[in-house]
Amino acid sequence: DRHTIHIGDITIHLEGFSEEELKLAEELIKRGIHLEEVKRILEELYR
């Protein structure tokens, strides 16, 4: 499954994450956390 996060003019595609995980990812990215770090956090929390 493919999910999309929109932040301003930026569109990020993250596959294989639930709606809850994507909301967390979006919040972290909006707070300035680097995408690679966001992915690592999600994997630690949900895998």
Rank of each mutant, 00 (worst) to 15 (best):
R31Q: 07
R31G: 04
I7Y: 09
E36T: 09
T11F: 11
E27F: 15
D9P: 10
L28Q: 00
R40M: 06
E26I: 14
E36A: 10
H6L: 08
I5F: 01
K30V: 08
E27P: 02
H13T: 13
L42M: 07
L22D: 02
S18C: 10
L42C: 00
H6R: 08
L22A: 09
I41S: 01
R2V: 13
E26M: 14
R31S: 06
A25R: 02
E43T: 06
F17R: 03
I41A: 04
G16S: 05
R40Y: 05
K30H: 09
L45G: 01
E44I: 12
I10D: 06
E36F: 14
E21C: 01
L42F: 02
E15N: 12
E15W: 15
K23T: 08
I12R: 02
I29W: 12
A25G: 05
D1A: 03
L42D: 00
L42Y: 00
H13K: 10
L42Q: 00
Y46F: 14
R47V: 07
L14M: 08
R40Q: 06
K30T: 10
L28R: 00
I41C: 03
F17Q: 02
L14T: 03
L14E: 01
K30Y: 15
A25V: 12
R2S: 11
R31D: 03
I7D: 07
E21Q: 08
L14S: 03
Y46C: 15
I41K: 02
R31C: 12
R40G: 01
H13P: 03
E19K: 12
E20D: 09
I10N: 08
I5D: 05
I7C: 03
E44D: 10
Y46H: 07
G32W: 15
I5R: 01
R2M: 14
E20C: 12
E43G: 03
L45Q: 01
I12Q: 05
I12C: 05
E44K: 06
H3C: 02
E19S: 13
L45I: 12
L42E: 00
I41F: 08
E26Q: 13
H3Y: 07
I33L: 13
G8T: 06
G32C: 05
S18N: 11
I12V: 10
F17G: 06
E44Y: 15
H3E: 07
L35I: 13
L35R: 03
K30D: 02
H13N: 06
L28W: 14
R47G: 14
E20P: 06
H3V: 14
A25P: 00
H3Q: 04
I7P: 04
E26V: 15
V38P: 00
K23L: 08
I12L: 11
V38M: 07
H13F: 11
G16D: 05
E27T: 15
G32Q: 02
S18F: 06
T11R: 07
L24W: 08
H3P: 09
L45E: 02
R40P: 00
L42S: 00
E27R: 13
R47I: 14
I33D: 02
A25D: 00
F17L: 07
Y46N: 06
H6W: 04
I12F: 11
H34C: 05
K23C: 02
R31A: 06
H3G: 10
L35P: 12
E15D: 10
G8M: 05
I10E: 06
A25W: 07
H3A: 07
R31P: 02
G8W: 11
R47S: 10
I5H: 04
H6T: 13
E37S: 04
I41T: 01
E20V: 08
E21W: 15
K39E: 03
D1G: 06
L14V: 06
E19Y: 14
I5E: 05
H34Q: 12
T11E: 09
L28M: 11
L28K: 00
R2A: 12
E15P: 12
E20R: 06
L28Y: 10
E37N: 03
T11H: 11
D1P: 03
H3R: 02
Y46L: 14
E15C: 12
L45F: 06
E36Y: 15
L28H: 01
H13I: 13
H34K: 13
L35W: 14
K30N: 10
E37Q: 07
E21V: 14
H6V: 14
E44L: 13
H34Y: 05
T4H: 10
L14N: 01
I33Y: 15
E15I: 14
E43V: 08
I29N: 01
L45M: 04
V38Q: 00
E19G: 11
G32K: 01
R31K: 06
R47M: 14
I12H: 04
V38Y: 02
H6E: 09
L42H: 00
R47A: 13
I41H: 01
H13Y: 13
E43I: 14
D9W: 12
R2K: 14
L24Y: 12
G16E: 05
G16F: 11
H6K: 12
E44W: 15
D9N: 12
H34W: 08
I5C: 02
E36K: 05
I41P: 00
R2W: 12
E19T: 12
